[in-house]
Design a protein around this nucleic acid. Structure first.
Lengths: 178, 178
DNA sequence: AAGGAAACTGACCGAGCGGTCAAGGGCGGA
DNA sequence: TCCGCCCTTGACCGCTCGGTCAGTTTCCTT
C-alpha cells in the first residue's frame, strides 16, 4: 500500500498502471489482485487509511483542551504537521476529489472533518469568542487555508512547518488586518 | 470549446472521450482534429481562456481603486462572482491541477494571480494596514479560502454569491475572532 | 515424507481510447 | 454539365490498460 501511495503521488493515479506498481515491488500481477479487488479499491483504502490517521493525530493533539479557539488552533497545527510528514498523500487526495469514482469517499472524509471544526466553532460563538457567522462556511474557509498552505508552503516550497503553522493560525484567527 | 468544457466538467477529463465530444456536437471526429491538434490541446486552451477571462473581470472590478485593502476585497468578490457564473470551470481547473500534463499551465496561471495579490498585500503592509507577514503565504491563504468557499458554498450548496462573498471578505480581513 | 492450502507468477484477453486517413459529397467556376 | 477542390466523415488502427486464470512454488500440518 505504501508503494502504491508513492507511485500514485509521483505520477498520478491514471498514469500509474497496476503493472507499474507490481513491477516496482518486484512481484507478479496476481499478488496485487490477491490483496485488492481492483485498482480503484487500492486508492479507496489509501484514502480511508490516511483520513483515519490524520483524524487520530488531530484528536490526540487536541486531547481534552477546553478552550474552543485553542482546539481549532491545535487542529490546524496537527493537520499541517501530518501533511508535512505525509506529503505524498496530498496529491492523491487532491486527485481523488476530482474523480467521480472517489469523490463520495472524499466527501465523506471532509464532512467528518468539517463537522469536528463546526463543533469547536459553535462553542466559540456561544462563548462570544468567535464572530457569529455561519459555522459551516467558517469551517470550510479554515480548511481552504490549511489545504492551500499545505500545497504551496509545505509541498512546493518546503518551508518549516512551524512557521507556516504560525502564519496559518494568525490568519485564521485575526485575518489580514492589524 | 464550450461543449468540451461542459462535458469535461460533468464527467471529468479522462472519462470524456473525443468520441463523446463530437457525438454531442453531432459532427465527425475529423472536425475535432481539424481545430485541435489533440485532446490535451483542447483542455489547455480551455484553461488559458478561462484564466484570461477571470483576470479581466478582476482588473475591471478593481479599476483604479487606491486602497490596497479595498483592492483585495474587490478581487475576492470578483473571483467569487466569476466562478458563480462559470461553475463548470471549477472542476476542470481542480482536475488540471492534479495532472502532470496540465499542472505547468495551471501553475503559471496561479503564479500570475498570486503576484497580483502580493502587490496589494505589500502596499497594505507598507501602509501599516496589513499585518507584516510573508505576503506570498498570505496571498495563498486568501486564494485557499476563495477556492474552498467556491467549491462548497457556490457549487455544492448554491448559496447566494453576495452572502458568501461577505463572509469570505470578513474572514480574510478579520479572521474568526471578534 | 506426503499432502494440501495459501501465496504467487506472468502470459493472455477484451475493451476502450486517442488519433488517422481513404473515401465521399457538396459547391463554385468553366 | 462536368471537373476539381476542400471540408467532412466514421470505420479503422495500434496501443495500453485493468483484470483473469491455469499453473507453479512455498511452507505449514500431520
Amino acid at each position: 500500500m505504501e508503494c502504491g501511495a508513492r507511485l500514485f503521488a509521483e505520477r498520478g493515479y491514471h498514469p500509474t498502471s497496476v503493472a507499474d506498481i507490481v513491477a516496482s515491488l518486484g512481484v507478479g500481477k496476481g499478488v496485487f489482485y490477491w490483496y485488492f479487488a481492483s485498482k480503484d479499491e487500492l486508492l479507496t483504502e489509501l484514502l480511508k487509511a490516511s483520513n483515519h490517521d490524520l483524524r487520530k493525530r488531530q484528536q490526540q493533539a487536541i486531547g481534552d483542551e477546553a478552550d474552543p479557539v485553542r482546539r481549532i488552533e491545535i487542529g490546524i497545527r496537527a493537520s499541517l504537521s501530518w501533511f508535512a510528514e505525509h506529503r505524498e498523500y496530498f496529491a492523491i487526495i487532491q486527485f481523488a476529489a476530482t474523480d467521480e469514482t472517489f469523490a463520495p469517499v472524499l466527501a465523506r472524509n471532509r464532512e467528518i472533518a468539517i463537522a469536528d471544526t463546526i463543533r469547536h466553532l459553535k462553542d466559540g460563538i456561544v462563548d462570544g469568542r468567535i464572530a457569529d457567522q455561519d459555522p459551516a462556511l467558517l469551517a470550510h474557509a479554515i480548511h481552504g487555508v490549511v489545504a492551500e498552505l499545505t500545497r504551496h508552503a509545505l509541498i512546493d516550497a518546503s518551508l518549516p512547518v512551524d512557521e507556516v503553522a504560525d502564519l496559518c493560525v494568525a490568519f485564521c484567527l485575526n485575518g489580514l488586518c492589524n
